[in-house]
Design a protein around this nucleic acid. Structure first.
Lengths: 156, 156
DNA sequence: ATAACTGCAAATCATTTGCAGATTC
DNA sequence: GAATCTGCAAATGATTTGCAGTTAT
């Protein structure tokens, strides 16, 4: 698992494995949440009655991102969150409901064609692709339809 | 132009057109930069020897985004920047250099196919597509290559 | 006239930093 | 034992807020 990846990366960098670094990594391994902010990691560690400081969480999470174990994402609310890289391998594509906010991962073939043609057009060497579709999920489409029927009269 | 859009939107909302709101809008209209942070808008107004407070810039820029004149973007450095919506209409596709941060708009055909196939797969009704490619722009590729050659000896 | 807006300064909130003491290799 | 960590508390920097005075309608 990532423990070992971390250990060997740390050795390469002449850095050390510590209890706190394990705790932060474990927080990500143990949670169902897709992403965690530093604040959330901090709380998860405290919940287990283990000690860590916020500053250390910030430093550790940043380290794990440098090492490639976590991916750093700046969310629309401006808060930085992290996710385990392996969890989302090849799932950079998300479809998000504008109504209920639920996000679903899904994968599309054809992405590679797209990437190639973008590289040709721009001369870039592409390292990461992010595709987000925003729209209405099936449930919200139905719900909104029902509401529209019910409120039919009171509209402009 | 956007002046009029703003005026009528404000009327609808029972809000007022003010000198400061014009100034902020003008800052976006007059600049070559693709995006401006509140701080940058603030400076641009001051440069013209006109008075505005930072708080007002923050409030105004947020208002313009609500109204749909500006698009709010949270950058990787955590700073919120805004861009004129019309500038990027139909150009949701951006390619961004991980090194120098320059972003380029460009368009790809094939997007519609992609969209269709995503709708079929998920049952969503898609309203917006955002595609971001991250990588190295041609200049940075060159520069990095040059640096690598120059520093060849001192490496692991 | 009066509701909406602005400027100011103080407050907030996430994140960063300096440093002294604790820990890992 | 020495370099690397951690915790703490103070600093920072972007953004927000309360409020008294100003301005647009």
């Amino acid at each position: 698992m990532q423990q070992d990846v971390l250990r060997s990366e740390l050795r390469r960098r002449k850095q050390r494995m510590t209890a706190q670094r394990e705790l932060v990594l474990k927080a990500f391994a143990d949670t169902d949440a897709e992403h965690l902010s530093s604040e959330e990691v901090y709380r998860k560690v405290l919940e287990k009655r283990l000690r860590i400081s916020k500053a250390t969480v910030f430093r550790t999470v940043e380290l794990l991102a440098e090492v490639g174990i976590l991916r750093k994402i700046v969310f629309r609310d401006g808060i930085v969150r992290y996710e385990l890289v392996e969890d989302t391998e090849n799932e950079e594509q998300q479809i998000i409901c504008n109504q209920c906010g639920k996000a679903f991962d899904f994968s599309l073939d054809k992405i590679n064609d797209l990437l190639k043609s973008a590289e040709e057009k721009t001369g870039f060497k592409i390292e990461e692709v992010q595709i987000k579709f925003y729209g209405l999920c099936p449930e919200c489409q139905e719900r909104l339809e029902r509401i529209r029927k019910a409120t039919n009269s009171a509209h402009i």
